[in-house]
C-alpha cells in the first residue's frame, strides 16, 4: 500500500509551521527548501539574525545532538550542514550590512600533514552561525602560518583540528611556537578531531578539547564571555 502526500507549499505555512518544516528540511538535508524557507521569512520581515539563531542554528543543533547520540551519521550531518549553508548564504550579506559586531573572532585550521577538513569546516560554520568571525586557514597548516595569522588577525580563539594520530602531535609544535614567541597567553586554544581526547588536550597545553562542533561553539562562547 502506498500513501500519498500533498506537496507542502512553504509560503502557505504560518511562521510556526514554517519553522517546524525548516527544522525537518534541514534535518533531511534539503538545501533548496531551507533556502526557500529562509527567503520566505526574510520576505515576512524577520531579521536575519533571528532566522539564523531561531531556525538555522537551532535546527543544526538538533542535528548535532542526534549525531552525538549515534542517530545520525556523517553523511546526514554533511547534508544538513550544506542546507544550513544554503540558508546562511542568503543571510550573510544582510548580516554584514547591519554592521553587527561579532561576539568574537576565531582563526581555525587543520594542522600540518593533515588534509581532513570536514570537522573543521563544520566547526567554522557553526561558529559563524553563533556570531563569531572566522578566519579559516585551510588544511596542512604549518606552525609559522598559524603564528602569522594570529598576529595579523588578533583573534580570541585559535582552533586546531587533526584527524590522524600521526598529525595530532603537531598541535604541540604550534603551541610551542606560540610559547616561544610569547604569544601563547594571548589566545584561547581549542583543539578537536576524532583521535583526540581531553587528556591529550591537557598534555599539549591547549585550553580545551571540543568533541564536536556544538561543544566547540559553547566552549568558545564561554571563553570570550569570561565564564570558562
Amino acid at each position: 500500500m502506498t500513501e500519498e502526500y500533498d506537496d507542502i507549499i512553504l509560503a502557505d505555512l504560518s511562521d510556526e509551521e514554517l519553522i517546524e518544516q525548516m527544522y525537518d528540511d534541514l534535518y533531511d538535508g534539503l538545501a533548496d527548501e531551507v533556502a526557500e524557507g529562509t527567503q520566505i521569512l526574510l520576505d515576512r520581515g524577520w531579521e536575519a539574525k533571528r532566522i539564523l539563531d531561531e531556525v538555522l542554528v537551532a535546527g543544526m543543533t538538533i542535528v548535532g545532538v542526534d549525531f552525538r547520540d549515534g542517530i545520525l551519521f556523517v553523511p546526514e550531518v554533511l547534508m544538513a550542514a550544506n542546507s544550513m549553508k544554503a540558508g546562511m548564504e542568503l543571510l550573510r550579506p544582510i548580516l554584514a550590512d547591519t554592521g553587527a559586531k561579532p561576539i568574537g573572532k576565531m582563526v581555525i585550521g587543520t594542522v600540518k600533514g593533515d588534509i581532513h577538513d570536514i570537522g573543521k569546516n563544520l566547526v567554522g560554520m557553526m561558529m559563524e552561525g553563533a556570531g563569531f568571525e572566522v578566519v579559516d586557514l585551510g588544511i596542512n597548516v604549518e606552525a609559522e602560518t598559524f603564528a602569522a595569522a594570529l598576529i595579523e588577525h588578533r583573534p580570541d580563539i585559535l582552533g586546531m583540528s587533526a584527524l590522524l594520530t600521526t598529525t595530532m602531535p603537531y598541535m604541540q609544535v604550534v603551541i610551542d611556537t606560540l610559547t616561544e614567541r610569547g604569544l601563547r597567553d594571548d589566545f584561547t586554544v581549542l583543539v578537536g578531531g576524532a583521535p583526540l581526547n581531553e587528556e591529550f588536550s591537557q598534555a599539549i597545553g591547549a585550553d580545551a578539547y571540543c568533541r564536536d562542533a556544538a561543544v566547540a561553539v559553547e566552549t568558545a562562547r564561554r571563553f570570550v564571555e569570561g565564564t570558562a
Binding site: G29, V74, P75, E76, L78, M79, I115, I118
Partner: peptide
C-alpha cells in the same frame, strides 16, 4: 558507508583534498 550511494554530491567534500 560514506553515504555516497545516497548523496553522490558529497564526494567533493570527502575526497576533494585527497
Amino acid at each position: 558507508g560514506l553515504g555516497l550511494d545516497r548523496h553522490p554530491e558529497l564526494a567533493g567534500q570527502y575526497f576533494g583534498n585527497y
